[in-house]
C-alpha cells in the first residue's frame, strides 16, 4: 500500500529519525453510493449487521485518499508521513467524503 513510503499515526516513525519536514499533506475523495447498493443495504437492514457493499466502497475510497496523500508527499520529496489522521463525512444524501491527512517528512 505504501509503495516505499513510511506511514505512521504517531508523531514520529518508530525507530527512525526525522531529518526534514515538508508540512501538511492531504488526499481526499468523494464517493456516491449507487442506487443498487442502496437498495441492497436497505434489505440488509431488515436483519441488521454488516453492510458489506458500503464496507468495500468506503475501503476503496479511503485507499484512494491515502494514495493521493502519498503522491502529494512524494511530490515534495518526502519518504514518510507522520501523524496520519482520517475523517469521513456525509456531504449529501447519498455521498461521503473520505479525507486523509498528515505531515510529510524525511526519515533516516
Amino acid at each position: 500500500m505504501s509503495q516505499g513510503m513510511h506511514l505512521s499515526n504517531t508523531e514520529t516513525v518508530p525507530g527512525k529519525l526525522i531529518t526534514a519536514s515538508y508540512g501538511l499533506v492531504q488526499g481526499s475523495t468523494v464517493r456516491a453510493k449507487n442506487v443498487f447498493k442502496d437498495i441492497g443495504a436497505g434489505f440488509k437492514n431488515m436483519v441488521g449487521g454488516e453492510l458489506k457493499a458500503y464496507t468495500e466502497l468506503l475501503q476503496e475510497a479511503r485507499n484512494e485518499a491515502l494514495q493521493r496523500m502519498m503522491m502529494d508527499a512524494q511530490a515534495r520529496g518526502a519518504n514518510a508521513i507522520v501523524n496520519v489522521r482520517f475523517a469521513t463525512s456525509a456531504v449529501s444524501g447519498g455521498a461521503a467524503e473520505l479525507f486523509a491527512y498528515g505531515t510529510a517528512v524525511t526519515v533516516q
Binding site: S2, S8, P14, V47, G48, G49, E50, R62
Partner: peptide, 13 residues
Amino acid sequence: SMLVMSSISVGPS
C-alpha cells in the same frame, strides 16, 4: 513499523 487499519459498515435492523 507500518500504519494498519480496519473498517466496517454496520446497520441496525
